[in-house]
């Protein structure tokens, strides 16, 4: 029986879809059987971030409505042999699916895959309730901004109220230069406020934009800082103990940065 992990945030545009794509691809690169589920019905995007938009025939709503079998709707990613995508419907809305149906769907998928990763829509309404319905674990994505942290706090409360205890935090788009001069909240500030476990910190990185342009998740890019950060998160999701490096310690800025994201040496 696999694990169903929902990636959520409350606020839009903080990197849920990017995180879903990278974690899923990263897990597949480590040999796990993974299916990504786009729960953002009406505003699907995981397909384009993954570069699989041209291969959609059936979608999640088709499966739930019984228009096709689950297997028919799954898109196999040809680049990574153990990775699949279940796309969202684009022409329907959130009310096309209910939490019971999502729960059943996730259960079915978890029987066949090691990891079912659900990309949650922004907001706290029906789409959110659908996305979390089948999950046993939650990853909350935030950025170091007041609005994103506030929404993350709200989401954490709602997750806990729904029985999803101990959500784990991904801090996305951290700019170390700004943190250093005191113009951006640091990791400790956010952990202090949100009081949940940290599972990873992803630096702001141009490679994310470039990889999204290409439809190729940054986790596969060995040279990218964000890619390295995602590879670390993937290992932590699998239960490995990958240390976090302290921002404030060490002498040189570059070596500190490099250590923080798990690089041994900057070439």
């Amino acid at each position: 029986m696999g694990e169903v992990i929902v990636v959520t945030s409350g606020k839009g545009g903080v990197g849920k879809t990017t995180t879903t794509a990278n974690l899923g691809t990263g897990l597949a690169l480590r040999g796990k059987n993974v299916v990504l589920v786009d729960a953002d019905i009406g505003l699907r995007n995981l397909d384009v971030v993954m570069g699989l938009e041209n291969r959609i025939v059936y979608d999640l709503v088709d499966v739930v409505d019984g228009n096709c079998r689950l297997r028919q709707a799954l898109i196999k990613d040809k680049r990574y042999s153990t990775l699949y995508l279940l796309p969202a419907a684009q022409t329907k809305d959130k009310s096309a699916v209910n939490p019971q149906q999502m729960q059943k769907l996730c259960q079915e998928l978890a029987e066949e895959y090691d990891y079912v990763i659900v990309d949650c829509p922004a907001g706290i309404e029906q789409g959110f309730k659908n996305a979390i319905a089948g999950a046993s674990r939650a990853v909350v994505v935030t950025t170091p901004e007041v609005s994103a942290v506030r929404d993350a706090d709200r989401i954490i409360g709602l997750l806990e109220a729904s029985g999803l205890r101990n959500p784990q935090l991904v801090i996305n788009r951290l700019r170390i230069d700004m943190v250093k001069r005191g113009d951006m909240m640091n990791i400790d500030d956010m952990i202090d406020i949100l009081a949940i476990d940290l599972i990873g910190v992803v630096p702001d990185d141009e490679a994310i934009v470039i990889s999204t342009n290409r439809g190729e998740p940054a986790v596969t890019n060995e040279a990218s800082m964000a890619g390295q950060a995602y590879r670390n998160i993937v290992r932590r999701i699998m239960g490995e103990d990958v240390p976090f490096m302290n921002l404030e310690s060490d002498s040189g800025f570059v070596s500190r940065l490099a250590k923080m994201f798990g690089f041994k040496k900057i070439k």
């Binding site: 007041v146 506030r150 706090d153 409360g157 943190v179 005191g182 113009d183 500030d189």
Partner: peptide, 19 residues
């Protein structure tokens, strides 16, 4: 005060109300 300290203070206050 750094701007991040202001952000943190404001967040703490607003979250008390939210929570």
């Amino acid at each position: 005060d750094n701007s991040k300290d202001i952000a943190k203070e404001r967040l703490k206050l607003v979250l008390i109300h939210d929570r």
